[in-house]
Amino acid sequence: MKLRTIFNYRKLLCNESKKFIRQSSTLAEAQSEDVIELNAQVHSAKSKVENSPVMVMLHGVFGNSRNFSALSRRIAKQCSIDVHCLDLRNHGDSPHSPSHSQPAMANDVIHYLTNHIYPSKCILLGHSMGGRVAFDAVFNNPDLFCATIIEDSNPFAREMKTLVTTDDINSPFAAIKILKSVDLSYFDGKSVSEVKAEISDVLEDKIPSMAVQAFLLTNLMQSPDKDGVQWRCNVSAIAKYLESYRSSKWDTTFEAYKSRLTKGPIDVPMLCVRGAKSNYILDKDIEQLKHLFSDVSLTTLDTGHWVHSEKPAEFLKEVITFLTLKELISS
């Protein structure tokens, strides 16, 4: 299987992208901003059927394209389709921007599709924040997609839960608050591995989960001058994004989406995969989604929020079953 990494940092929206971006109230903010060319890791299938779709994967907050490395390789091999794992703006190796709005992120994805995947149809898979971005992208540009898979993500505005503990609480604010509280200048002259070891001792009292500690620390990187470390993700921009969930002006409610439907439910098959120990996707969310999309199915696995990493074989089976049922891949 061939793996290549695309590094391209153009920020202007090309004319080809513009013709696919549907004008809407939620895209108004994104239309006024530069669109970012996203970094990607591409896993190419050894043999492909002519006109086969391409899968694109979108990670969650604080994540990056490498979160899907194992899953993307298996899908490329077993489904004989190319898989593109993207770094969303302000994450991984994609450029940083002061804006981290959901419409802007969705616009980045559409820009990537029209430049790197079109005219092939896209299967868009997103986890958590990536699931909300995927929902926005498909809702506003359905003609580019043949299916979407939402992993433990709720596109509708409501109080978010934390990724730091499982028995609380308020939202991912705990994690971003911790990252913002760390003074990285204290570690000048030290390597990433040295800093991780020291920070881990500090995080132990604040973050009970070793897995979450390790996940957050994947965002540590050596600074360009090699004299210290810095966060790979744009902590300040992400903090503003998370804070937007507290705003009463948040416009991604079910009612807001429903009011924008002009031709009935969208005809793009959607699979929602949720964790039984997570409460990101509620039964009522599925009922509301069925008013917006004509073909919505739900499966629940015995996991928490990180479904594809906690039950990789089961998650892969659900994805392959769904794609086979929709005749997007051969059985």
Rank of each mutant, 00 (worst) to 15 (best):
K161F: 10
P53V: 10
R22D: 10
K258S: 14
M129D: 11
L217I: 12
D295A: 06
L13G: 00
A134W: 00
L203K: 00
T252K: 05
Y280D: 10
R260Y: 06
L216A: 06
D302L: 01
Y9I: 06
S247G: 04
I178L: 08
S120E: 15
T253E: 11
D205T: 13
S94N: 01
L316R: 02
K11R: 03
L282Y: 09
D285T: 04
T262Q: 03
S181C: 06
L124C: 09
D143V: 12
N115F: 02
K326R: 10
D188W: 01
D136A: 05
L12T: 12
N170V: 08
I150S: 13
P224W: 12
S17C: 10
I281S: 04
D93N: 14
I178T: 10
F293D: 07
N219Q: 13
V192R: 06
L13H: 03
D93H: 13
S309P: 01
A104W: 02
A30P: 00
A104L: 08
Q41D: 15
N15R: 11
L124Q: 11
S101D: 12
Y9C: 03
I176F: 05
V56R: 03
T299Y: 03
K121V: 03
V268S: 11
E327C: 09
N234S: 11
K326F: 05
K249V: 11
V273C: 11
I286H: 02
G131R: 00
I117N: 09
V133C: 08
C272G: 00
D93R: 09
R89W: 05
S69W: 02
S200F: 05
A211F: 07
K249F: 06
R22Y: 05
I117R: 04
M221K: 13
V49H: 08
C146S: 13
P95G: 07
Y118M: 09
M221P: 00
G275T: 11
S294C: 02
F139I: 09
C146P: 01
K196F: 05
N67L: 09
T324G: 11
L217M: 14
G189W: 05
H59A: 04
E33P: 00
R232Y: 03
D251Q: 12
T300E: 15
S72D: 12
S44N: 13
I110K: 01
A28Y: 02
P119I: 15
S191Y: 06
S331N: 12
D34T: 09
L163R: 00
L216V: 13
I286Y: 05
